[in-house]
């Protein structure tokens, strides 16, 4: 059964690595719903957040292929319940329309929107939240002539993660300690494949 998974990839900061990760998906004709590249909690370590809709089995295989890349340190996959996530959206509408027909204060309050720019001819709103929340504001603004809309990729925090600091210390050692779990997909395979 296909399901939404959020993949978190910790990597070295290396030109071309995004491509190496992307071709793992495209080679298998799997689409990426959202991809975000950002710094992580550790300086110099990059963090990709990828959203995909696939079966658990496919997700595990993809994660292993990503983790196989030389410059990838670690890959985690999580279901929606295991993460806290947000997306950001921007909406541009005509200032005249908004001023005349809609109550800006109501929008701000009801949808948690903020105004990020007001010009004579246009106003830009911003919301952050889950997909449904950002989608809902589109519906509300459409009647007033939504000029432009854009939504960012997902960013996600793993609820149970203790951060990457300790793991990185282990990776830096030539001989890793016994406590280092190098390939979590292998050790988790019992729960994974009995589903």
């Amino acid at each position: 059964m296909k399901k939404e998974f959020t993949i978190t990839v910790y990597t070295e900061n290396q030109v071309g690595l995004l491509n190496r990760i992307a071709i793992i998906f495209s080679r298998r004709k799997i689409s990426i719903d959202s991809l975000n590249s950002s710094p992580s909690e550790i300086e110099g370590i990059h963090r990709f957040t990828i959203v995909m809709n696939e079966t658990l089995e496919v997700v595990v295989k993809i994660c292993r292929q990503i983790e196989k890349q030389v410059e990838v340190l670690k890959v985690y996959y999580n279901t929606e319940e295991e993460i806290v996530w947000q997306e950001l959206a921007l909406y541009k509408v005509s200032t005249d329309e908004i001023a005349e027909k809609a109550t800006v204060e109501r929008l701000l309050r009801e949808y948690g929107a903020r105004v990020v720019a007001i010009r004579k001819d246009y106003t830009v709103f911003e919301t952050t939240g889950h997909r449904e929340e950002t989608d809902r504001l589109i519906k509300v603004l459409e009647p007033f002539g939504l000029i432009e809309f854009v939504r960012s990729a997902r960013v996600a925090i793993i609820k149970t993660s203790k951060g990457f600091h300790e793991k990185l210390k282990e990776f830096e050692k030539t001989e890793p300690g016994e406590e280092l779990v190098e390939n979590e997909f292998l050790n988790k395979r019992d729960d994974v494949f009995t589903m």
């Binding site: 990597t11 070295e12 030389v70 410059e71 990838v72 340190l73 990185l168 990776f171 830096e172 030539t174 890793p176 016994e178 280092l180 190098e182 390939n183």
Partner: peptide
Amino acid sequence: CQHVRSYRPKPI
């Protein structure tokens, strides 16, 4: 080269 931190050729 003996070690690349993001690359673990030989697992425990």
